[in-house]
Design a protein around this nucleic acid. Structure first.
Length: 667
DNA sequence: AGTTGACGAG
């Protein structure tokens, strides 16, 4: 009998290890006799396959089976199953049973119990249980640290990590991995480096989990090149390593390299998973390559990963960034499970796509039925309020952010400053800015840009000069603000001083936008030749914005030659642009070159170019009205034009004047 | 012949 059981149990083990649970179960069910080891092997097969319901149902059968004694092996497996299925009720029952039988003192049972509470989100119960454990090993310590870190209590996790050392328990690769994740989430590079040194001392720094965690830590702390170098030392990067490589490239703005890495990983026969697809799809989103995005969408549908949260979320981002809000919306509505990221993503997509109303609708739907909005969703709708200039809505969102305690997050603060200044209330923007801590360059940038847009150039420049005194560093966007402020008041020398300091002092490569500010500055000063030279020396391919600046300036300064050159470049990029034709014609006309002007008009006609009139809109009494230049379709059109004429004729009209005119016209 | 803990997503 003894020999027979040994033989059968090994067979059972072979089958579960190979993942053939059906044959294993077949053999198990036909066994003439089942001992503790048979039960353990079978249950562990289900637990390893994450089939917690089958594991627990088998456990209940064993509970009532005769001649089987409960032991720590089976109990820890059952607890693990409770952690997997998030079944805290059954877990608590097992806790009571373990205390009654004394099995709770087994370090295996204890560690599994602790992990069960942590996985069920009962962090406090887990910690209390850990403090009462009679015996703890490296697994128990790692379990408590993991639970804390996963719940976002990173510092508490690290304090257990330090306590563990003082208790004389040695770290292993599991412990290092989770401690490094805590450092990554807290972005504390120095402690991360210290742990890196310890992993090297132990000789585990090149093992998959540790190397991946180290790379993540360096990436999150902004040391991207360091993180990438670590992968070079790995003998065989696994799927997580490849995913991190792709993510790092995408974060650095090297999308093409990210996509290349994705292709290289497939050549190395590493199979991508949901996180890998999410990473490469976000890369594709950044460069707005709809065709590649659609290919990957089809591909994830084929491999059955389209339903995964991270994949669906990144697909929504991709479609939104490609200007396809409709496809993003279809994905969102078809999702059976949505997390807070899904909601924030679709709201941001609508906001950036100019679908302000849909963004508001989604936010109220989220507030009714979804998770609590975070700063991501709120800052998106604040930007909608700014671009649509609806101050009342903006104030309401501000009030909501206050009540949920998000108003002092950096993201909301800068979004509020932007919203208020875009809505024309620079005073409220200043108030939001003055209430903020001095630790956030994004808010400073928003305020500088707000001042610049409102023509308060001196204030913008003054604020920029203060940045260094509070220990901050201007970034690329900050420079756009201060350069456009210089451009508005024509401070040519100061503008060039800041522009040069970008590369010399701050090591920031000027982007198209920075060049645009400088070219504007030169144009306003009438230095059209220098502007043209600067455009030609720019290290960028498509530069229609700057050529049209030059074209407009040529019109103002009556420079036919410059205007012709600028228009030529613009028409190469967009041959049917009505504005370019008209401005060029006006330049010729204003300098008396009537024949050339007429030629341009004829050219327009032959190409069939039609000038679309510009639209504007205004909100009056909760109703948005659109109007267009020359429009006479409004029922009170005559009154409107009368008032317009009065406004144009009189230098200064008071609000009282306007009110009396309106009163008269409304009868 | 059997048991516990880890890294990657907006």
């Amino acid at each position: 009998m003894e020999i027979n059981m040994l033989e059968l149990n090994s067979q059972l083990k072979c089958l579960t290890k190979a993942g053939d649970l059906r044959s294993a179960r077949n053999l198990f069910d036909r066994l003439p006799h089942r001992d503790e080891i048979s039960w353990t092997t079978m249950i562990s097969g289900y637990v390893n396959a994450s089939d917690s319901s089958e594991a627990l149902s088998l456990f209940s059968k064993m509970w009532v089976a005769p001649c089987v004694r409960m032991d720590p092996f089976i109990l820890s497996l059952a607890l693990k199953a409770c952690g997997l299925s998030v079944d805290v009720k059954f877990g608590e029952m097992l806790h009571g049973y373990s205390v009654k039988t004394g099995l709770v003192s087994s370090v295996f049972v204890g560690s599994a119990m602790l992990d069960m509470y942590m996985k069920n989100g009962r962090v406090f119960d887990g910690c209390r249980f850990f403090d009462d454990m009679p015996l703890r090993n490296v697994v128990s310590w790692t379990a408590i640290i993991t639970g804390l870190v996963r719940a976002g209590f990173n510092s508490q996790g690290l304090s257990y990590f330090a306590k563990m050392w003082r208790d004389g328990v040695d770290y292993d690769s599991y412990t290092f991995a989770i401690a490094l994740k805590a450092c990554a989430d807290l972005e504390i590079l120095n402690y991360g480096k210290e742990i890196h040194a310890r992993t090297m001392k132990k000789g585990v720094d090149t093992t998959s989990y540790v190397a991946n965690s180290l790379a993540t830590m360096y990436n999150k702390c902004g040391k991207l090149e360091y993180g990438l170098r670590l992968f070079g030392n790995m003998s065989k990067p696994d799927v997580v390593s490849w995913t991190s490589i792709i993510t790092t490239h995408v974060q650095r703005g090297q999308e093409q390299q990210g996509i290349d890495s994705f292709l290289r990983m497939r050549e190395c026969d590493v199979c991508p998973n949901e996180y890998t697809y999410a990473a490469v799809i976000s890369g594709i989103a950044n460069i707005a390559r709809l065709d590649w995005g659609q290919q990957l969408h089809a591909h994830v549908l084929q491999v059955g990963l389209a339903g995964s949260l991270s994949v669906a979320n990144s697909l929504m981002t991709m479609y939104s960034k490609c200007g396809n809000s409709n496809s993003a919306s279809i994905i969102f509505h078809e999702m059976t499970v949505r997390d807070v990221i899904s909601w924030s993503t679709i709201i941001a997509g609508y906001s950036q796509g100019g679908c302000g109303e849909e963004a508001f609708e989604l936010l109220s739907w989220m507030r009714r039925e979804g998770p609590k909005p975070t700063e991501f969703a709120l800052s998106s709708v604040l930007s909608v309020c700014g671009s649509m200039a609806i101050l009342d809505h903006g104030r309401q969102i501000h009030a909501y952010a206050l009540t949920v305690g998000l108003d002092q997050t950096a993201m909301i603060r800068s979004a509020l400053i932007n919203m208020y200044s875009k809505c024309g209330s620079i005073a409220e923007a200043e108030k939001s800015f003055s209430m903020s801590e001095n630790d956030d360059i994004v808010s400073w940038t928003a305020m500088i840009n707000g001042y610049a847009e409102h023509g308060y150039s001196q204030e913008a420049i003054g604020l920029f000069e203060k940045i260094c005194h509070v220990g901050l560093r201007p970034d690329s966007v900050t420079f756009i603000g201060v350069l456009s402020a210089c451009s508005h008041v024509g401070l040519l020398d100061l503008g060039f001083h800041y522009f040069d300091s970008m590369t010399n002092e701050y090591r920031i490569n000027p982007s198209k936008e920075h060049y645009g500010c400088m070219i504007d500055l030169l144009c306003r000063a009438g230095r059209l030749r220098e502007a043209e030279n600067m455009i030609r020396s720019m290290p960028f391919e498509r530069d229609d914005v700057v050529w049209s600046s030059l074209l407009r300036a040529s019109r103002e300064h009556g420079d036919v030659e410059c205007g012709r050159i600028a228009a030529e470049h613009l028409l190469q990029l967009d041959p049917d642009c009505a504005g370019t034709h008209i401005t060029l014609a006006n330049i010729y006309a204003s300098t008396g070159k009537w024949r050339e002007a007429a030629d341009v008009r004829k050219l327009m006609k032959s190409k069939g170019v039609i000038k679309e009139p510009g639209w504007s809109w205004i909100k009056v009494k909760d109703q948005v009205s659109a109007f267009v230049s020359g429009d006479k379709s409004h029922t009170q059109a005559e009154d409107i034009y009368n008032i317009l004429e009065l406004l144009a004729s009189k230098e200064e009209l008071t609000i009282q004047d306007l009110a009396s005119i309106l009163y008269v016209s409304e009868g």
